[in-house]
């Protein structure tokens, strides 16, 4: 969960707010004060992971006030908040290589400079699509962060150690919904099957290696190495839900080299619109 701090317990509604210094959602101290400056390769890897979290958080944020029940407004909001926290840490770290802030990277890069995977760019769709996307991505992220905790890069290891606990909850949340939708009503089962088959073409890209990974031995986690654990983790859930792994299209992907789905440009346009209308302003 993102850390939200106020400067005082702040129960006194008659306070004149003379000394307001709301210190909210601060980044972890080790990130701000740490001596570590990312190398170009590490920064690129941090962008891979940071952009995935940012794009997914942006999508989940759009559910808040539109979810099927109030409890899900809260739950999807929690997941989005966790992901935005991971994105901020990772983008902050990536920015140390080129002296850019998390916001410079989030708001002032254009589409080809983003490194997100196509799966996180896929639209929310109905609740089943959002859940299928969450199910795939959070299981992947859990396996990733579990291993990244042992990274030779202390900053990446620290971010992963915190993120893995949160992603574990996301994994459980999406698993519970996959079971309910797959085994609820005929309609929900049909929707779950459709959603899984719509999202599955984007799974392969997640586990594709790149020369960047060769250069970051011991620092990055090799995506292909996660596939067996991912398959083993989702298999019992799919079995219990009586769902089969869809066969069919495999999307060619390309997010890691800046070749994105058609959806990303719209998502960025919305996310960046206000900031770009006021260059140099602070918020």
């Amino acid at each position: 969960m993102s850390e939200i701090k106020a400067d005082a317990p702040a129960n006194d509604h008659e306070d004149a707010h003379g000394h307001v210094a709301v210190d909210v959602s601060t980044l972890d101290a080790e990130l701000i004060e740490g001596p570590s400056q990312a190398t170009a390769d590490i920064a690129e890897y941090a962008l891979w992971l940071g952009d995935d979290s940012l794009v997914l958080a942006q999508q989940l944020g759009a559910w808040i006030s539109r979810a099927p029940e109030l409890e899900e407004d809260v739950a999807l909001g929690n997941v989005a908040l966790d992901l935005i926290g991971h994105a901020r840490s990772l983008l902050h770290y990536a920015g140390t290589a080129t002296d850019r802030s998390e916001d410079d990277l989030a708001y002032w890069r254009t589409e080809p400079d983003f490194r997100s995977l196509h799966i996180v760019e896929q639209p929310n769709g109905d609740f089943a699509h959002t859940i299928a996307r969450q199910f795939i991505v959070s299981h992947y992220l859990f396996e990733l962060y579990s291993r990244l905790r042992a990274s030779a890069d202390a900053t990446l290891a620290a971010i992963a150690a915190k993120a893995v606990k949160e992603v574990d909850y996301h994994r459980d949340h999406s698993t519970q919904w996959v079971l309910r939708l797959a085994q609820g009503t005929d309609e929900s089962r049909h929707r779950m099957i459709t959603a899984l088959s719509d999202l599955w073409p984007y799974v392969e890209e997640i586990f594709r290696d790149d020369t960047l990974i060769d250069r970051l031995e011991g620092i990055a986690v090799r995506p292909s190495s996660l596939r067996p654990a991912f398959d083993a983790a989702i298999a019992p859930v799919l079995a219990e839900a009586e769902l089969e792994i869809p066969r069919g299209f495999v999307a060619s992907g390309g997010g890691r080299t800046g070749n994105h789905s058609e959806h990303l440009a719209f998502l960025l346009a919305e996310m960046q619109v206000l900031t770009r209308a006021h260059p140099g302003a602070s918020w």
Binding site: S25, D73, G77, L81, I84, V273, L274, S282
Partner: peptide, 20 residues
């Protein structure tokens, strides 16, 4: 979705979530 910084986005999400 249009909050002008990531910090503001996080705070706003947390706030709307509190309201739920």
């Amino acid at each position: 979705t249009r909050a002008p910084s990531l910090k503001r986005k996080a705070i706003l999400m947390a706030k709307v979530q509190d309201e739920a």
